[in-house]
Design a protein around this nucleic acid. Sequence first.
DNA 1: GCTGATATTTAGAATTATTCTAAATGTTGA
DNA 2: TCAACATTTAGAATAATTCTAAATATCAGC
Lengths: 148, 148
Amino acid sequence: MSAVKENPTVEPLAEQLEKSGFRATPQRVHVYKTLRAKRDHPTAEEVFIRAKQNMPDISMATVYNCLDALVQSHLVRLVNHDKGATRYCSNMMEHHHFYCVECGGAFDIDAPSSVREPLLKLPAGFKADRYEIAFRGLCPDCATKKKK
Amino acid sequence: MSAVKENPTVEPLAEQLEKSGFRATPQRVHVYKTLRAKRDHPTAEEVFIRAKQNMPDISMATVYNCLDALVQSHLVRLVNHDKGATRYCSNMMEHHHFYCVECGGAFDIDAPSSVREPLLKLPAGFKADRYEIAFRGLCPDCATKKKK
DNA sequence: GCTGATATTTAGAATTATTCTAAATGTTGA
DNA sequence: TCAACATTTAGAATAATTCTAAATATCAGC
């Protein structure tokens, strides 16, 4: 066993990039690893700051380029909170998001295999190949605080 | 009967705004009507352009202010495509969105009453009060073109 | 109806997020 | 090794959004 199947780390990473016509450059690999090191939903700028710690010469433009290449290679997902900069997520397992309206936090919500299948009939003609659910409400912490 | 219940037009609009601590100013009413006049998902700038046609002195800042007030009053929803500016949607009936990866179009998908209820168990502690599904794939037009 | 307190609008400046540009560098394959 | 092409880089340019301060409008109490 290994994390490889669900979470490609280096070999499959290169393959995935190349499958989409990209080279597996040190910067792309590094940005990818940076993203995976912490499972939150950083903005491009946060990724930039973190990436610089181990690759001080990387530039903002490169971070945008790399994120783009990773998204196109389906190695990273792009997620939007309601406001503010675009965020990135390296958790490619099927999952959804919960946004706390109180503290602004974003949380991954696993998709149990039982609801992997289309949960809603689309009008004729639409061909969806994926979907994502965005929940909004109170996260456990904020829900507790509110009750007081 | 009337459209009032599902689609507040003027009276309930004022009430809704006031309930959230806003005044029902001419600009806010006008921005709201502008949004309802065409059921697409315009950006703030598109709303600005349309709103100016009947209220030439309205400013961009006001459009942002009004949209903000309308969103806070739950009269308008905010929707994000993957990239680009935030978009606004005046269809408050429960519905979801379909994004076409080919043409970039966004489509409303009605939520049949059968799936109004929580469709996925959230981890303990999370209190969701709403959710939205974002589908991605090909819209009918693009799906047809692709087949050729 | 006046008056002061407060809310809103406005234009434009400022800020933030993202993309573009052109030059330098790196990589690949003949 | 050379030519072709991809990538990175810094900084400029653009786009999206928020902020600021002054002018205007509205409201509640008199």
